[in-house]
């Protein structure tokens, strides 16, 4: 009996060691790819969100908007606030258009505008256009514990990484990106993202429902709450055109 118990324990230990060995064998690049697949690895995705901007004094204001995304392409429409009716089309890095309802005109947005915040929030337009971790960063495992890998990421020169460096906290097992921080060239932290409230949006589609962004230089915060999340809807490329931008005006 004792022998049998010891045998079982040994089997468990061996199995754990084997599993652990597999986990350790995963390279940072592989983890980054798997995490990105979990977060962005869909043919297309649609999100309906409320963005709450939280000032340092605690006062809040909220805007509702939707994002339709396919690869690098995004279509963002505001449905409340002073920007209601405004829409942004991101065809790719450097190809951004805005529909301005006041002028009834589609205007090409210059790259310098991408540095601006997204609707006064702590998201920049660059953050919103950022759709691929492995396409923009290389990674190294900085540390890990039982639950997380912490990846130190460095921007790939010539790509469209929004910041020079990042640190990503990836949950082991699920590859969910639970938190990440962006750094400037001097290595100072600029912005942190905390993702929480892992939710099943239907059919086992898991996604953190809440994203809290903190500007670490000012303490200003923005919370994004996802109301609806749909993926792989076979959205055609024609949804990401100026024709569509004008049609929705």
């Amino acid at each position: 009996m004792r022998l049998r118990t010891v045998g079982r324990m040994l089997a468990v230990v061996v199995a754990l060691a084997a599993f652990s060995g597999t986990a350790q064998a995963e390279t940072a690049a592989e983890i980054l790819v798997k995490m990105d697949k979990t977060v962005n690895g869909f043919d297309d995705q649609f999100m309906d969100n409320t963005m709450t901007i939280i000032n340092i004094d605690g006062s809040k204001k909220s805007y509702r908007f939707s994002i339709l995304q396919k690869g690098e392409k995004r279509l963002i429409r505001f449905s409340t606030g002073e920007m209601k009716g405004m829409a942004n089309l991101i065809e790719g890095a450097g190809r951004v258009y805005a529909y301005l309802p006041g002028q009834k005109k589609v205007r090409r947005v210059s790259a310098h505008n991408m540095q601006q915040s997204f609707a006064g929030s702590d998201f920049s337009n660059d953050d919103m256009a950022f759709t691929s971790w492995p396409g923009n960063y290389t990674a190294e495992i900085k540390s890990q514990d039982d639950n997380y890998w912490v990846l130190a990421c460095t921007a790939i020169p010539g790509k469209s990484a929004p910041y020079p460096a990042a640190e990503a906290k990836v949950r082991k097992g699920t590859y969910q990106l639970d938190a990440y921080t962006f750094f400037d060239e001097a290595g100072k932290p600029i912005k942190s993202f905390e993702n929480s409230d892992l939710t099943d949006f239907g059919g086992g589609l898991m996604r953190n429902k809440t994203v809290l962004v903190t500007d670490l230089r000012t303490g200003h915060k923005t919370q994004l709450e996802i109301h609806e999340f749909k993926v792989n809807q076979k959205v055609p490329d024609s949804k990401f055109t100026q024709r569509e931008l004008e049609w929705g005006r």
């Binding site: 890095a93 450097g94 190809r95 951004v96 090409r108 947005v109 210059s110 790259a111 310098h112």
Partner: peptide
């Protein structure tokens, strides 16, 4: 025409 550079330091 409208020209937009990828470089954020270059004006439109």
């Amino acid at each position: 025409f409208a020209y937009s550079s990828d470089n954020p330091w270059v004006p439109g």
